[in-house]
Simulated scan of single mutants.
Amino acid sequence: MKIAVLAVQGAFIEHEKKLEALGAECFELRQKKDLDTEFDGLVLPGGESTVQGKLLRELDMFDALKERIESGMPVLGTCAGLILLADQLTNDGHVYFGTLPVSVRRNAYGRQLGSFRTVQEFAGIGEVPMTFIRAPYIEEAKAGTQVLAEVDGHIVAVRSKNQFGMSFHPELDADNRIHELFLKTVEA
């Protein structure tokens, strides 16, 4: 199983290390020719969503990735990756891939000083550690979207068909169960 990790900006190496430790083969998407490599799943990491969206267009990778997501390729979007997937941003006029039926508030927990860690229930897994860094949250999960986790009444993880979107950074904690869930989805 081969997982492509968007590596134009942001926290991608941590995802790669975790997925490789779980037995997946990873490679980095850095330029358009990388899309010629066959892959089974996609990770959109945390970082700066505006920069990632801009670079995806400048590098002519945006449309091809959107098409793969819409065609059912499993994708894990964390923090900025969630923003890239969302079909609506409530405090920003931009929409990037727009494939995940959720309304997301960017930087909902404030600036860097608003970063925090918690342990909360994650549907089907149990309690998991969650690290939030300048994180968004999901204001609305629309039809067909399953809420997987909430923190203080705010939705922080969802699934819609092949897409997982999370406000937090599961790659920064020792718990592997979220990445295992993603890999099981890819395998299926």
Rank of each mutant, 00 (worst) to 15 (best):
S49M: 07
E67H: 09
E67S: 11
G41Y: 06
K32W: 03
V51Y: 09
Q31K: 15
S49V: 03
E58D: 10
E28W: 12
R57S: 04
R68T: 04
L42D: 01
L29G: 04
L65E: 09
G53N: 12
K66W: 09
K66R: 15
L42K: 05
K54P: 00
D60R: 12
F39C: 06
L55F: 13
D36Q: 15
A64F: 05
R30W: 07
D63M: 02
R30A: 05
E38G: 04
C26V: 11
E48A: 08
P45Q: 05
T37C: 06
K32D: 07
L35E: 12
G46H: 01
F39P: 01
E28Y: 15
D34R: 06
C26F: 02
G46L: 01
L44C: 11
R68F: 08
G53K: 12
A64S: 14
M61Q: 10
F62W: 13
E38C: 04
E38V: 09
F62E: 07
D63R: 08
D63Y: 03
K32P: 01
T37D: 07
D40N: 14
R30D: 05
G47A: 08
K54Y: 15
C26L: 04
L44S: 05
T37A: 14
V43C: 12
A64C: 08
D60C: 01
D40E: 14
D60T: 02
D34Y: 06
K33Q: 14
